[in-house]
Amino acid sequence: MPEGTAQSAIDTFISAFNASSGTCVIDLPSQALTSDVVLWGPLGRGEGSEAVERFVLDIRRHPAGTGTTTRCSEVDMPDEWARYEWVFATPDDGPRLAGTDIVHLRRSLIDQIIVFGGEPEPSS
């Protein structure tokens, strides 16, 4: 599978975190994910697009305010697996998270997401 196909699915998924409306949060992932997607996240394992929607909505409801999520690396794709780094930041220099996601693609759609995230290392 070409890296451009994976990057497109990944960027569509990430755009749900930054969507201007709740409807887009539901619509955008459905364009990038299989209906039986499996999410391995910080709170455990979830199955189906509804689990991913809940995860995205939970991040968007951060107590420090609505933040933005940005892919901050190239997509590295050996065969049907891809990985990328991301950063989440809230307004006014609020809490930040950073991490690496690993995704598996099937027929140009993400069918597994493994989220590794935490507080970023301080810059030196």
Rank of each mutant, 00 (worst) to 15 (best):
L39M: 04
G117L: 14
S49E: 12
I59L: 10
G118A: 08
Q31T: 08
A98E: 10
T12H: 01
I110F: 07
F116T: 12
D111W: 02
D79M: 11
P63W: 09
L109Q: 13
V52W: 01
H104N: 11
V38K: 04
A16S: 11
I14H: 11
F116K: 00
R45F: 01
D58N: 13
V25D: 05
V75F: 04
S108H: 14
G4T: 14
M77K: 14
E119R: 13
S15W: 01
T90H: 03
L43Q: 13
N18K: 03
G118F: 10
S73C: 05
R96C: 06
I102N: 03
G41T: 02
G22R: 09
M1H: 08
V52Q: 06
L109R: 15
Q112A: 12
R107C: 06
T34Q: 10
R54V: 09
V25T: 14
R61N: 15
A32Q: 09
G118P: 07
V87K: 12
D76R: 13
P120Y: 00
R60H: 01
S20G: 15
R106D: 08
A9D: 03
S21D: 13
T90F: 06
V56K: 00
M1V: 14
G44A: 05
A9F: 03
M1K: 05
A89T: 14
G117M: 15
P63T: 07
E80I: 02
T12E: 09
A64E: 15
R60K: 12
P122E: 10
E85D: 14
E53D: 12
V25W: 07
A89H: 05
T12I: 11
E121V: 15
V103S: 06
D92K: 11
L97R: 06
E121N: 05
I59A: 15
T23D: 15
A19Q: 06
G44Y: 02
P2H: 09
T90E: 05
R83H: 11
V115I: 14
S35I: 04
S108Y: 03
D11S: 09
A64P: 00
L57N: 12
L97T: 04
T66S: 10
E80F: 02
Q31S: 10
C72W: 00
D111A: 07
S15Y: 02
D76V: 15
D76A: 14
M77G: 04
D11V: 00
G4F: 01
A98V: 01
I59N: 08
P29S: 01
S8W: 06
L57M: 15
G118L: 09
A19T: 06
T5L: 12
E50N: 12
V38E: 09
S73H: 02
I110Y: 04
T12A: 10
L43H: 08
P29Y: 03
D92N: 15
G46K: 02
V103R: 00
I102T: 15
F13E: 00
I10F: 03
D93Q: 14
V52R: 05
M77V: 12
G94P: 07
V75R: 06
R45N: 02
F17S: 03
P122V: 08
A6V: 00
P95A: 13
T70H: 10
Q112D: 10
I14M: 10
H104C: 10
Q7G: 05
V52D: 02
I10Q: 06
A89R: 14
R107T: 09
L57T: 14
D58V: 02
Q31W: 01
D111Y: 02
V52P: 05
F17A: 04
V25L: 07
A82Q: 02
I59K: 07
V115N: 11
E3V: 15
V103N: 04
